[in-house]
Design a binder for these strands. Structure first.
Lengths: 191, 191
DNA sequence: CAGATTTTGCACCGATTGATCCAATATGAG
DNA sequence: CTCATATTGGATCAATCGGTGCAAAATCTG
């Protein structure tokens, strides 16, 4: 029927995601996106509507991938709650070597938070989902006697993700894995 | 001897700092800086060498102001260690209402971390100074029997500042003071 | 006042920005 | 093979970027 594409849309989206993840929205030029994806301008604008739209798709993809993995850990009832929390935090201690430093979500909150309410809404909903899931898991652990009942479950859950954000900022600054490990160690006193 | 300035350099620097703090380096245009400071382009480039130089001065000013205040709290031996840590963290729960959301240092680490080693060096040195001071305070508290001796002092100190970073990211996302308070509450279990 | 000196406002610079247009190309349907 | 259709590369767009040049304005010294 017509000329077929010579590239894989998913791979292009992945490459674009990594550029945004590394450099942020503003500092990434359309030329950078062309170079990273190996596509020409026409192909990019033909496939994705605009730089902004490509960014949104890349961010959504990142959020879905990471949140799915995190929710799996949070809801894994075969693990004690302390171990689940440890695994959540550990991703910041030993990140995938081929991944850019830090966290795309944290970077985006910091860069676009004050002036892009739509983006913040998306990230907020995702954040709420994970906090709710961890809150539920904590409550179950408390009911089972695996965890101190004095602590507020929602507060404790938010605390975990807040610290995770801090760990990811630290990773962006180049904090050593050993330093990160000590922080996780200290944080786990609550569990 | 010559025509005098019609503006206050310090006030201009402060106004520029708040724009960078709010929008970041890349998203701030020289026009934004003119508008915020009330100066013309010539005055800005005559007083500060470049956009980048103005940013560096603004960042250094911010770091000095905030670190001075934090070190004062950390070294205040009239307060129990738990109270000192609480005050450090509390700045993220109840920030000055007229200040932009979040923390200029965190924003800068996230935005420029991977590609501006000089900036990271500056922020790293400042970070190390504060961690060292808090480590010393924690060791003293342990020696005095005010704090559990099992915890690693440096790890605990880094933990506090890591969590503070997370709180400031959350503030940029618009986290409620109540939610932030619960996080601080949970974090203080270690003290 | 006169002259030296600095600041100020404004026009302007080349480079780069995100985005568009169009002709050449490549394919599947008939 | 031919036509319809979609993709591709490259030229090009107006707008904006950070930064500069210059002449008018304003002040202090003498």
């Amino acid at each position: 029927m017509a000329r077929p594409r010579t590239f894989d849309e998913d791979r292009a989206l992945d490459a674009a995601m990594r550029v945004f993840w590394t450099s942020g929205y503003e500092a990434t030029s359309t030329q950078d996106l062309c170079t990273a994806t190996g596509l020409g301008r026409s192909s990019i604008y033909n496939t994705f509507i605009s730089k902004r739209d490509l960014f949104d798709r890349a961010l959504r993809r990142y959020v879905e991938d990471f949140s799915t993995a995190q929710l799996e850990v949070i809801r894994d009832e075969s693990l004690p709650i302390r171990e689940r929390v440890r695994r959540i935090l550990w991703t910041a201690v030993e990140p995938e070597p081929e991944d850019p430093a830090g966290c795309f979500v944290i970077n985006t909150i910091v860069e676009l938070g004050p002036r892009e309410p739509d983006v913040v809404d998306l990230l907020d909903r995702d954040h709420e989902t994970k906090v709710a899931a961890l809150t539920t898991a904590i409550q179950a652990a408390q009911a089972a006697g695996d965890l101190d009942r004095e602590q507020d479950p929602a507060g404790l859950a938010t605390y975990v993700f807040t610290l995770l954000g801090g760990l990811r900022v630290a990773a962006r600054r180049g904090a050593s894995p050993e330093s990160q490990r000590l922080v996780v160690e200290a944080a786990l006193s609550n569990f």
